[in-house]
Amino acid sequence: MSIKRIEVGPRMSQAVVHGSVVYLAGQVALGDGVAAQTRAVLDQIDALLAAAGTDKTRILTTTIYLSDISTFSEMNAEWDKWVAAGHTPARATVEAALATPDYKVEIVVSAAI
């Protein structure tokens, strides 16, 4: 089975397709607060899924990392506007120290092709 890498960098690829699944690297974005960062990250996810030949209705699993779990409802407000009704993935949300204090949210998804 072939492996396709999307947006390959020196340390990681932004997405890897193997078989009928695409695995996205953790997506982060800068912005003023968790809501703005969540919107930007979800836009990045849409673009990467499209590059892999799929979309958000095919997401299988999602892990969301928040630098401060008290922003859970802010993040969820953006998520709820974005996620496709009837196509919600298995999901976990956890509080974690992210790569830099500037990042408030990081989202990882895997989707079927």
Rank of each mutant, 00 (worst) to 15 (best):
V17L: 15
A25I: 03
A36S: 01
V109W: 05
V109I: 05
A97C: 09
P101C: 04
T38S: 06
E78P: 03
A29Q: 00
G19S: 08
I64L: 05
I69A: 02
T61I: 08
I59C: 11
S13W: 07
S110N: 12
A25G: 04
A50G: 07
W79Q: 08
L42D: 03
A40V: 01
V34N: 04
A40K: 00
K104L: 12
P101I: 04
T63Y: 12
I6M: 08
K4E: 14
L66F: 01
T93D: 05
A36P: 01
L66V: 02
D80R: 05
T88E: 06
A29T: 01
E95M: 01
T62N: 08
Y65I: 06
G53W: 13
G26F: 00
D68G: 09
Q37Y: 03
T38G: 04
A29N: 00
W79Y: 14
A35I: 04
S110K: 13
P10G: 15
T100K: 11
S73Y: 14
S110C: 12
A47N: 14
P89A: 13
R11E: 15
A25V: 02
K56W: 12
V22G: 11
Q14R: 08
P101N: 08
A36H: 00
H18C: 01
S2W: 07
L60C: 12
A40R: 01
D68I: 07
V94L: 13
L42H: 02
V34K: 03
A52K: 11
S110D: 14
T62Q: 09
V109P: 09
R39H: 00
E106G: 03
S13T: 06
S73N: 15
A35T: 07
K4G: 13
K81S: 05
V108F: 08
T88V: 13
T57G: 15
L98A: 05
V109N: 12
A90Y: 14
G31H: 01
Y23P: 06
M12P: 06
A90E: 14
I64T: 02
D46A: 07
Y23S: 03
T38R: 05
K56G: 15
L66G: 03
E78Q: 05
L24N: 09
L24P: 12
V34P: 10
L49S: 11
A85K: 14
F72M: 15
G9C: 05
V16A: 13
D43S: 10
T62Y: 06
L48Y: 11
A40Q: 00
A47V: 12
D68V: 09
S20Q: 14
T71D: 00
S13V: 05
A77G: 08
I64Q: 01
A84N: 12
I59Q: 13
M75Y: 03
T93G: 04
F72D: 15
T88W: 10
R91W: 11
A99H: 07
A77C: 07
K56I: 14
A35M: 09
N76A: 09
E95C: 05
S20G: 11
V105C: 07
